[in-house]
């Protein structure tokens, strides 16, 4: 994992994107990243699933929930998956230690709490990028490039579909990631996503597909 990326992303989350922050902030950021590197036990799990994409979303013919095969109704997901017959369902978490570190830091010093929170967010993203990079390598070698990961909550891909992703991955058992009734992932520094295999991939959606145009962190 690239510590420099975690560092610059942490600073971006803290609102010091383009400016050079003061020494004390930098010191806190480095301390937070070091603590995370020492304490967290990131884990991930993935599965390959057959899909049938369409304009209104995708069908998952091999996945059952309450006795029926599953459909994800989401135009944006339909676009992401167009031309694909398979996708990767992916889950990753920094684990409970990250939440404890944030809570501990915030209880002692709220500034450190905010920094730890940002650093943990940057850390899980970088962890996902690393795993996804490895998967991309593997699939590219087999002649099937992967697209970007796409998570419930992006575009019109409803958060409620988290229940299905969790069922497919058996997240609780495999990586200790749980889902609350309100579709909140616990531990909090976690990511679930679907990744298109093959198809018309190569698209870089990123911030551009998000409707929150006044977002503080939107990338130009």
């Amino acid at each position: 994992m690239r510590t420099d990326v975690i560092r610059s992303e942490t600073l971006r989350y803290l609102g010091c994107g383009s400016e050079i922050p003061d020494e004390k902030t930098l010191e806190m950021v480095d301390k937070a990243i070091a603590l995370l590197q020492e304490k967290v036990r990131p884990k991930s799990v993935y599965k390959i699933i057959e899909i049938v994409p369409g304009a209104e979303g995708i069908k998952l013919p091999g996945v059952y929930r309450n006795g029926e095969t599953v459909k994800f109704i989401s135009e944006s997901l339909g676009r992401v998956m167009s031309g694909c017959t398979r996708m990767i369902v992916f889950g990753a978490t920094l684990g409970a230690e990250a939440d404890m570190l944030i809570k501990r830091a915030a209880a002692g010093n709220i500034a450190m709490g905010a920094v730890m929170q940002a650093a943990a967010a940057a850390y899980i993203e970088e962890y996902c990028d690393t795993i996804q990079g490895e998967l991309s390598e593997k699939f590219r070698a087999e002649g099937e490039p992967l697209g970007d990961r796409f998570s419930p909550g992006y575009g019109d891909f409803a958060l409620e579909y988290q229940h299905v992703l969790f069922g497919i991955l058996d997240c609780q058992r495999r990586i200790g990631l749980t889902l609350s009734d309100n579709c909140i992932m616990i531990p909090s520094k976690s990511v679930t996503a679907v990744i298109p295999i093959g198809g018309s991939c190569g698209r870089q959606l990123g911030c551009s597909c998000c409707e929150k145009t006044d977002c503080l962190y939107r990338r130009k």
Binding site: L14, G15, C16, E19, P21, D22, K24, T25, M28, N109, I110, A111, G113, A114, V115
Partner: peptide, 11 residues
């Protein structure tokens, strides 16, 4: 002033 600095002052 960035968030961490604001919060350091708060602390």
């Amino acid at each position: 002033v960035f968030l961490p600095q604001l919060l350091m002052s708060a602390e």
